[in-house]
Design a protein around this nucleic acid. Structure first.
Lengths: 253, 253
DNA sequence: AGGTAGTGTTCACGTTCGTGAACGCATCGT
DNA sequence: ACGATGCGTTCACGAACGTGAACACTACCT
């Protein structure tokens, strides 16, 4: 059998090292501890830092494990995956449309983590796990609306803005305007831009500090959405409140 | 800032994906979920499997997250790092020598995770974090004694067996004999092989299933060790029992 | 004030990896 | 029984990475 992939093995070494230390470690300490060249160590530390696994202290240039990673390991979005599904099931029945839970993924993408399909035979369905672009999906736009300006700019250009349907907004300024609107209203509605006949409506789930950014959305058949958008938006808002309350109730930060 | 290191980022993606799924995922499902080529996915899955992060089900070729990783994340040796130090402090005072806790690292190496220095001004001390070779250290030999034959053979040849002192055993057969002796007696004693004037004595900590392999050892000034080896070995044995009992008492598998 | 030591960081290039194409195999449908 | 499909796996080669050497900077000591 072939040997390990070097960087993959090293990143695990690094995380294991940090998990044995409560105080921070400098780049040089990590390099010595793992017997790596400093420049190789730097690349891996930057990757872990960028991904949110490590936090860097400004005062002494040391790194330490993100407290949430230390507590939950990889399952940092595990709690919301336990809390959200029952609420999503109820919403799917009430709204009659498919419910999706998504989180930011690589720049410009949304990772769909959970799904409750509509009970209707005619439905907008997807298979999990799945990633979708942010620029032309409701989940994506509300998540983009919560990003720092630099990350937002980068996200806009990280994924080619292809016209997936005749209605897809691909113009950069138009997408910015749509995200700005989502920021102001708290909702995003995307009609027929990602899939013909499909409308997405989504909002961010307001969670506390230290919690991962997540959004809930409805994936609707466009004709049904147009019949009563206010009802669907209200039902989505209600579900989001229930999830946020349940997460706050279990909070033990 | 430069972009992420591809494999490092991907291995995190993979672990996060598995942490959202209780049931297993096949290679193809992982590749689809993360939008990776199958051959790239295979390399990363093999690395994670080899490192013990993933378990592979024979019946359907699917992978799933190791239960211990799912529960503890990276801190899979976190519990012993909480339990052992108070016992090690007491042992350092009783024995008058430095106490070390070690675990297997890459093939042929031991990772030193915790240390209680001897209160004596004349002492055998090391800085953490640190890795030492297995072939010529007491901690290493007792850990080698617990390995499967194939892993043991590989470990013997993974690290060049340099003569660190005039007493270092570098002959392959002699090292095998020393490890065999450690297997039979439950102890390893290494006099002046790793450092002139330093003697190591170590034994494995008998922990339950699913617990990581770990060993405790004394790093003694050789002259002091020779004065009363039986006392030091007995004190080490007593500390190991206390650690094992404490770990069993907290066990909630 | 100047020299030394160690830090974090950059970069060019040799080394290693990532992966597309292809393979052997198992399963399923006709 | 045979063809189609999708699985896990292998391998050669272009692409990307790892890292030694060097740098700029900071802190400390004389």
């Amino acid at each position: 059998m072939t040997s390990d992939i070097k960087s993959a093995a090293r990143v695990l070494d690094m995380l294991e090292l940090f998990s044995t230390r409560c105080d921070g470690l400098t780049l040089s300490e990590v390099a010595r501890g793992l017997e790596l060249p400093k420049s190789s160590t730097l690349g891996l530390l930057r990757t872990l830092h960028k991904r949110g696994y490590l936090v860097r202290e400004d005062e002494d240039d040391s790194y330490r494990l993100n407290d949430m990673i230390r507590r939950d390991g990889f399952a940092r979005h595990g709690r919301i995956l336990r809390v959200a599904p029952p609420v999503m099931t109820a919403l799917a029945v009430d709204a009659g449309e498919t419910v999706l839970l998504g989180m930011p993924d690589a720049s410009g993408l949304v990772r769909l983590l959970a799904k409750e399909a509509s009970p209707s035979d005619i439905r907008y369905d997807i298979e999990l796990p799945r990633k979708v672009p942010a620029y032309c999906t409701a989940l994506g736009r509300v998540l983009l609306a919560r990003m720092e300006p630099a990350a937002f700019e980068a996200a806009l250009d990280s994924v080619p803005r292809a016209a997936l349907t005749a209605s897809t907004q691909v113009d950069r300024s138009a997408v910015i305007d749509a995200v700005e609107a989502a920021r102001e209203t708290g909702f995003a509605v995307v009609e027929d831009e990602f899939a013909v006949g499909g409308t997405g409506v989504a909002a961010v789930i307001p969670l506390g500090q230290g919690q991962p950014l997540a959004a809930l959305g409805l994936a609707c058949i466009s004709q049904r959405y147009r019949q009563d958008p206010a009802r669907l938006q209200a039902q989505l808002g209600g579900a989001i409140s229930r999830i946020a309350e349940a997460m706050a109730g279990q909070g033990n930060m």
